[in-house]
Simulated scan of single mutants.
Amino acid sequence: MAPRTTPTARQQRLGAELRKLRERAGMTAREAGALLGGNQARISNIETGRVPVSADRVRTLASNYGCADEPLVDALAAMTGGRARHWWEEYRGVLPAGMLDLAELEHHAVGIRTAQTSTMPGLLQTVDHARAVFGQACPPLPPHETEHRVSHRIKRQAVLYRDEPPDYTAVLHEAALRMRFGGPDIARAQLAHLLEAGERENVTVLVIPFSAGAFPGSGQTFMYARGPVPQLDTVHLDQPHGAAFLDAEPERVQYAALWDRLASLALTPAASRDFVRAIAREL
């Protein structure tokens, strides 16, 4: 099978996790390849995500590496994904790859936590709000690209409404609630949508008011996606130059602690809803 030219973030992550198992076993790529009846290049291509790997092959590699963590092995085997084609593939070659990788990350997450300081989370935006946000891109986006990005963002939201959706908690700073993207009418409709989404059993909205004062990581926007096992948790950073996905353990620990700290500064869910309603009345 021909190598992939552009493996997805999920495919790269699977390969990286297999490399970690091999390195912990103190085994070289040449030695691992020999156990499979192959060669070093085969292992290297698997570990970079450039060559597909089956669930059975993942289990064989894990066994060769002496990994006895069954939940982790099961989760890695599930990441092989077969040849399933998901909705975001229709945007491949149309939108930046990072946007598609984000949709795939959300699709497979068992829990999502996000922190936003100046904009609404993409999974909670209205169509008009999303269009207004993309309308502020610098340099400006062509109209057709804006619409592609808007439709992709709205389709991502289906993850919150499917059967067995992930638990989703958003920590929003008051600044994000007061940003009038698109003007007062669109902002008012966005706040109403936020309140409606927060009524769902799997969605929690927490607000940090200005009165809370300074807080750690101010200005940062990040999303923490929980995987089926803690080792597969991922941090997503939305940056001007594109998406960044962090999965090293120190990074995961750092951002998990940061999110917990932000959540501790926020109002309760009920008080947060009242706060959002009060801002909406001011518009």
Rank of each mutant, 00 (worst) to 15 (best):
E31N: 06
R19N: 10
D56R: 13
H86W: 09
A68F: 10
N39L: 04
V58R: 03
R50L: 03
R22W: 00
Y65F: 12
I43R: 00
S63F: 10
R85F: 04
A77Y: 14
M27D: 09
V53N: 05
R57E: 13
I43L: 08
N45A: 01
G37A: 06
R24D: 12
L36N: 08
R24F: 08
A41Q: 12
L21I: 03
A77S: 14
T60Y: 06
G82K: 01
G81K: 09
G81N: 08
E23C: 07
R85M: 13
L76Y: 05
R83I: 10
T80G: 09
L72G: 06
A32P: 10
G81W: 07
A77P: 12
G82Q: 02
R57H: 05
L72V: 14
A55C: 07
A55F: 09
A25H: 01
A84F: 01
G33F: 03
A34C: 00
L61R: 00
S54Y: 00
R22K: 02
M79V: 07
R57V: 03
L76M: 14
V53A: 04
S63K: 15
P71K: 15
T80V: 15
A62P: 15
R85C: 05
A78D: 14
I43C: 01
E31P: 02
E23Y: 05
D74M: 13
P52S: 03
R19L: 09
H86E: 11
A62M: 14
C67N: 14
A29D: 07
T28F: 05
G26W: 12
L36E: 14
A55N: 04
S54T: 15
A77I: 10
R30L: 12
T28A: 08
V58T: 13
L36D: 13
H86F: 14
I43W: 02
H86C: 04
E70Q: 15
T60D: 14
G49S: 03
T80F: 06
A84W: 00
E47V: 11
A78G: 04
A78W: 00
R83Y: 10
M27F: 07
T80N: 10
R30C: 10
R19C: 11
A41K: 14
G38T: 13
V73K: 04
M79Y: 02
V53I: 07
A62S: 15
I43H: 00
V53W: 00
S54Q: 09
L61F: 02
A84T: 09
G49N: 02
G49R: 01
K20V: 02
M79D: 04
L76K: 13
